[in-house]
C-alpha cells in the first residue's frame, strides 16, 4: 500500500480542513487552506488517494514541512 504525505508549504495557521478520513481525493484537490502572512494558502494533494488520517484541525499552528494529511491508495490495511 502506498502512503502519500501532504505537508505544509510554509508556516501558518490552519484555516480550514476540507477533507475527512475515508474521503477520496483527486490529484490537485485542495485538502487544507492555511492562513499565513494574511494570505489564503491552498494546500493541494500532489496525487490522488484515500484520506487515511487528518493530522491537523482548524486553528492549529503548523511549521513548514509538517504533515497535514496522510493519503493511501485504499488497497489494504
Amino acid at each position: 500500500m502506498a502512503i502519500h504525505l501532504i505537508t505544509a508549504d510554509m508556516a501558518g495557521v490552519v484555516a480550514e480542513v476540507k477533507v475527512r478520513e475515508g474521503d477520496q481525493v483527486a490529484p490537485g484537490a485542495e485538502v487544507v487552506v492555511l492562513e499565513s502572512m494574511k494570505m489564503h494558502i491552498p494546500i493541494t494533494a500532489g496525487q490522488g488517494g484515500r484520506v487515511r488520517e487528518v493530522r491537523v484541525a482548524a486553528g492549529a499552528f503548523v511549521n513548514e514541512g509538517d504533515v497535514l494529511v496522510v493519503l493511501d491508495d485504499g488497497t489494504g490495511a
Partner: peptide, 10 residues
C-alpha cells in the same frame, strides 16, 4: 506568484 505560498518571498 500569489497562487504559490501566497507569493511571499523566501
Amino acid at each position: 506568484q500569489p497562487r504559490v505560498k501566497g507569493g511571499v518571498l523566501f
